[in-house]
């Protein structure tokens, strides 16, 4: 009996020790959480990304006998091969505006690692005219070309506010093949931007 009683007395003691250990850990966790709340201001919202198309990639008016191409670079320079440019709307690159809302107002300079994707080749056939853009270029930092179907990673540095905005331009080379007539080409140009990491 004595052993039994002793056993009964010991068991609660062991339970109390373990509970205290656990409680201490939990308290530490809560403290750490409190510290965390102090170190990083509370998020007002989860991060979000938006991308808007501001300008169409404009190749202007031109004619070609059978095949030709016209290049409008991201910087706005225009060159052509086997085409005759015509007066009219001025050629120019597409423009997009990327915006990242990190969700809080912390005044910390940060960078963003993003990927930019043109999902597929931009092309259109209209009557006897076909137009294809197989390669794009952009003025995003460190990137010279955008190949359809291939993601390109870009680091945007110097973001200082909750909302980090960058405007970038996209140019390309339009290859035209013509058998008869002319055409007004209007080719969709979807751009997908993904934020991979906030650095």
């Amino acid at each position: 009996m004595l052993r039994v009683c002793h056993a009964f007395q010991i068991e609660p003691t062991r339970w109390t020790t373990a509970a205290l250990f656990a409680a201490a850990l939990f308290a530490a966790a809560l403290f750490a959480a409190a510290l965390a709340s102090t170190a990083v201001p509370a998020r007002a919202a989860p991060p979000s990304v938006s991308l808007t198309a501001d300008q169409t990639l404009r190749f202007g008016s031109f004619f070609t006998d059978t095949t030709g191409s016209r290049t409008v670079s991201a910087t706005g320079s225009v060159t052509g091969s086997a085409i005759v440019p015509l007066a009219g709307a001025a050629p120019g690159p597409a423009q997009f505006t990327f915006s990242y809302d990190r969700g809080n107002n912390a005044s910390v300079t940060y960078s963003l690692l993003i990927s930019v994707l043109v999902p597929s080749t931009a092309s259109q056939v209209s009557g006897g005219v076909s137009g294809t853009i197989a390669q794009f270029d952009t003025d995003l930092p460190g990137v010279s070309s955008l190949l359809p179907g291939q993601s390109t990673q870009v680091t945007l540095v110097g973001c200082q506010r909750r909302i980090c905005t960058r405007t970038f331009r996209v140019g390309g080379t339009l290859q035209v093949a013509r058998s008869t007539g002319g055409a007004d080409l209007a080719i969709p140009l979807p751009i997908v931007v993904t934020v991979l990491a906030e650095l």
Binding site: A39, P47, A53, F62, F63, A94, G131, D184, P188, L196
Partner: peptide, 27 residues
Amino acid sequence: IASPALAASVQSATAQGQVAAVIVEPI
């Protein structure tokens, strides 16, 4: 929660741009 190296969850956005060109029949 306290980690200063904040790993952003994957966030994507798509914009529908457009390409425009007027190809004229040669004169």
